[in-house]
Design a protein around this nucleic acid. Structure first.
Lengths: 144, 144
DNA sequence: CTTTCTGCAAACGATTTGCAGCAGC
DNA sequence: GCTGCTGCAAATCGTTTGCAGAAAG
């Protein structure tokens, strides 16, 4: 975990007029330690007595502040990870068997090609791109 | 719409022991005409008196038969489109403002690079890739 | 005829929300 | 202290399911 992670989180929340409370810090720590997107159940299990509704509410606040990103997989559960500029650029392996989500990275040469092609496509469509998702869907090592 | 689209749909459903009924045909026609992923509300509006539960059930059947694909956007509504081998390989523009989903394509040179890189990444992770998603997230021309 | 599909209405479950009390500054 | 956060429990709403009758073959 980056040493200034909490400082950054604090600042981004401050911009939105939000506090960096104990619960919010706990969520950031858990996500930072996980190294993969976590579902609500994961967070509740890892956290110490966090209330479900508070976690949902805090995830929304953290997402709006740009500290956390929501990841939609193949099952019915939403998952969350730290914002990409707080970790490193990566993609997801989405298992259709168990719903698990794992991270992976691509060579920077490939990223550059994709980046350029997407920028062109977005411009052509009059679309203001903020982010992109490049995920693999299939069966993980356990389910395959 | 491909002339043999209904024949293909019929055959794929038959493999699963399913019938290609009037309702299912109607869904396929609507999706084929749309040229973009449609939400349930879109389908109910376009269809002529289709029951909500039947549409949901038929979409599941059609998805299992490989005729239809579910597309997850940025809003709370699931969307559906024809399977990729019945149309052409494409990607999605996901608008975070209004939730709209539009199609776009990339140059085949880019697709090849991505395809190869993903195959390598999947092999390395012991992941059996079935499909990939490469979508742009941002604001569409109307919301931007 | 038999099996599958359909439509209605009721059930389900992840997520959201109202409210009273507590914590942060 | 005042404002915003928390936890509990109830509400919301897209989606799923049970069942009796209709359609496909």
């Amino acid at each position: 975990m980056a040493p200034d992670l909490h400082e950054i989180a604090f600042e981004r929340l401050a911009i939105d007029g939000q506090r960096y409370t104990k619960n919010r810090k706990a969520i950031v720590v858990i996500l930072s330690d996980a190294g993969r997107p976590l579902s609500l159940a994961d967070l509740l299990q890892s956290g110490d007595g966090l209330a479900q509704s508070s976690v949902y509410r805090n995830l929304i606040v953290l997402e709006e502040a740009g500290v956390v990103r929501k990841v939609v997989g193949t099952d019915e559960f939403a998952r969350y990870e730290l914002a990409e500029d707080l970790t490193e650029h990566h993609h997801h392996l989405l298992c259709t068997g168990c719903g698990a989500v794992e991270d992976f990275t691509l060579p920077s040469r490939v990223e550059q090609v994709v980046e350029a092609a997407l920028a062109t496509a977005a411009r052509r469509a009059g679309f203001r791109a903020v982010d992109h998702r490049l995920d693999l869907v299939g069966l993980c090592a356990n389910c395959g």
